[in-house]
Simulated assay, not measured.
Amino acid sequence: MNPKIDTKREAKRIIFGLIGAVIMAVNIKTFVRAGGLYPGGFNGVTLLFQTICDRFFDIAVPFSPISLALNAIPAIISFKAIGKKFTVITSLMIVATSVLTDMVPAIPITQDILLISVFGGLINGVAISIALIGGASTGGTDFIAIYFAEKKNKDVWNYILLANAVVLLVAGYLFGWDKALYSIIFQYASTQMIHLLYQTYKKVTLFVITDEPEAVYQAIYEVTNHSATEFTATGMYSNEKRKMIYSVVSTMEAKVLTQKVMEADPHAFVNVVKTDTLVGRFYQKETY
């Protein structure tokens, strides 16, 4: 890889990671703690542990050491399974989030628990998405989600949402079910925001009816580095022979590619179909 491109890539990771860390820390102090919520993941476990120590043992435990200890094992696994640079940048973000959470002053914006749950969840999803788009993550369960996305080509964010239910059950049993139920709203809003903003691993199938198959294929290859399959088709109404190009690309690539295809053949007919399952060889750009 070009050293300049590699430097820009790492700089992007650091910048996006730090932005995500700042947003995450401010959100924890502004919304999450104000509402007594448990955001799921290792942040939720950390907050739950802090609350248990405070309520039952009258011990004020800082956020940083618990969060760092919980993230240690997933970080080691990620270092070997996902990528060294990705893990290092993510680890820096974990440290930054932990330290900032202890440093940022608590400034509650509202006491309305429903508003806190919805907007806190949306902001949490934005923070995670910014980190992921930059090529880093917020650590913890993100390591798990990215491992399955990168290595198994599976979207497991909703499964992580279900796994977080364990934290909520414990929190609900110890501190009241109202906070646990509001935390579900928080986590759902966060998950949906991630699905909206981060679409790298979502796939779509592209069908293009065209008279310029070579130009369309070239556009697909240049944008995605994917190949395509050409079929000979016959228009039922006109009885004319045309070509159909078939390819599978990511959702984000499809948005750019559709425009490129229409530039290559203004008379092309493009159909983009959601792809839920994909088996076989599929080129995935190296992100981590």
Rank of each mutant, 00 (worst) to 15 (best):
11 A>K: 01
11 A>N: 01
16 F>Y: 10
17 G>W: 02
18 L>S: 10
19 I>D: 01
24 M>N: 11
26 V>L: 15
28 I>R: 04
29 K>V: 13
33 R>Q: 15
36 G>F: 06
37 L>G: 03
39 P>Y: 00
43 N>Q: 09
44 G>W: 03
45 V>H: 01
48 L>I: 04
49 F>I: 15
49 F>W: 12
53 C>S: 11
54 D>I: 08
55 R>A: 13
58 D>R: 11
63 F>I: 03
64 S>Y: 05
66 I>M: 11
67 S>I: 12
67 S>M: 15
69 A>W: 05
69 A>P: 09
82 I>A: 09
82 I>W: 06
84 K>W: 13
84 K>H: 11
92 L>M: 15
92 L>I: 15
93 M>G: 12
94 I>S: 06
98 S>L: 12
99 V>R: 07
104 V>C: 06
112 D>M: 12
113 I>N: 13
114 L>T: 12
115 L>W: 09
116 I>K: 06
117 S>K: 07
117 S>R: 02
119 F>I: 07
121 G>L: 06
122 L>V: 13
124 N>I: 01
124 N>T: 09
125 G>V: 04
128 I>G: 02
128 I>Y: 02
131 A>R: 00
131 A>T: 06
131 A>C: 14
135 G>S: 08
136 A>Y: 08
137 S>N: 14
147 Y>L: 15
148 F>V: 04
148 F>I: 04
149 A>G: 02
150 E>H: 10
150 E>A: 08
150 E>P: 00
154 K>M: 15
155 D>K: 12
155 D>L: 13
163 A>N: 01
164 N>W: 04
173 Y>N: 04
177 W>R: 00
179 K>Q: 08
180 A>H: 01
181 L>W: 00
181 L>D: 00
182 Y>R: 00
184 I>D: 01
187 Q>I: 09
188 Y>K: 03
190 S>Y: 00
190 S>A: 13
190 S>P: 00
197 L>C: 04
204 V>L: 09
204 V>W: 08
207 F>S: 11
207 F>I: 10
208 V>E: 10
208 V>R: 09
208 V>Y: 08
211 D>R: 14
211 D>A: 15
213 P>E: 13
214 E>K: 15
219 A>F: 12
226 H>A: 00
230 E>S: 12
231 F>L: 15
232 T>I: 12
233 A>Y: 06
237 Y>M: 13
241 K>C: 11
244 M>W: 03
244 M>T: 11
245 I>D: 05
245 I>K: 05
246 Y>N: 12
251 T>P: 00
253 E>V: 05
253 E>K: 07
254 A>Q: 02
256 V>R: 15
257 L>P: 11
258 T>E: 14
259 Q>M: 10
259 Q>H: 14
261 V>W: 02
262 M>I: 06
265 D>F: 08
266 P>R: 14
266 P>T: 08
267 H>V: 07
269 F>K: 12
269 F>T: 12
270 V>K: 07
272 V>A: 10
275 T>Q: 07
276 D>Y: 11
279 V>K: 08
279 V>Y: 10
282 F>D: 02
286 E>M: 06
286 E>Q: 07
